[in-house]
């Protein structure tokens, strides 16, 4: 592992205002994640794991504390800079896949490249390569409705990979899948991690978390367990 962490959290706090009450979602999280790690984030609902994931994904900014990802301090970035950061550094995989309906698998995978600051040349080839990597080379023209749940999630993974992110952030990626397809999808994450991509999973299922080499357990806005 390299000496400089890819993700560096110091006393990370996030507070929401709900009506008249303040909700302390994160109450001071400090941890480092290095490039190439495979991390599972666990915890019950309300533990702060989703909040933590939103911060890692640069979808939200911390109330206080410092979050540095790939050399950038997330709390100081403007809305446009956050968008560019998500586009270049992060790959997202969601529980509900979030594919565009009535749009081919290939077009879905190409989507992040539409928002790139430096439009990729050979967009088609790049998207096709990603679909082949997840084993869908023969179904590029299919629409999401013509694909099974596992296949849809693999399209979503291909979409997350298309801009060559440093970090793959997966939020309950197997939550909508059965056991067999879950194993397939987790196999792909393992393969990607071996290729050098940092993979961060958010899950509440212990057997899914077991695929990761490091488990972080959240409770009441704090990390209570960090085991490798």
């Amino acid at each position: 592992m390299s000496a400089v962490p890819l993700i560096r959290c110091r006393n990370l706090q996030k507070t929401y205002v709900m009506g008249d009450n303040l909700v302390y979602a994160l109450r001071g999280v400090s941890l480092d994640i290095y490039a190439g790690e495979y991390v599972a984030i666990m915890g019950a609902s309300g533990s702060g794991k989703s909040t933590f994931m939103n911060l890692l994904g640069a979808l939200d900014v911390p109330t206080s504390g410092d979050l540095e990802i790939d050399g950038r301090h997330i709390g100081t970035l403007s809305s446009d800079e956050l968008a560019a950061f998500r586009n270049e550094v992060m790959g997202f995989v969601f529980q509900q896949f979030n594919l565009l309906a009535r749009t081919s698998a290939l077009a879905n995978v190409e989507l992040p490249m539409l928002y790139s600051r430096h439009p990729a040349k050979h967009r088609d080839e790049r998207a096709k390569a990603c679909l082949e990597l997840v084993g869908l080379g023969t179904r590029m023209d299919h629409h999401p409705s013509q694909l099974s749940g596992g296949q849809q999630q693999r399209v979503a993974i291909a979409r997350a990979l298309v801009n060559e992110p440093r970090i793959l952030l997966a939020d309950e990626p197997t939550g909508a899948l059965d056991t067999t397809t879950s194993e397939e999808v987790m196999g792909i994450f393992g393969k990607l991690n071996q290729m050098g991509i940092t993979v961060i999973l958010v899950t509440h299922e212990p057997d899914i978390a077991a695929y990761a080499r490091r488990q972080l357990v959240f409770r009441d806005g704090l990390v209570v367990e960090d085991k490798s």
Partner: peptide
């Protein structure tokens, strides 16, 4: 809404 959320997550700016 979900499509918009996805587009923002994968890097669309507000102006996009």
């Amino acid at each position: 809404t979900r499509e918009i959320g996805l587009r923002i997550a994968i890097g669309a700016r507000q102006q996009d």
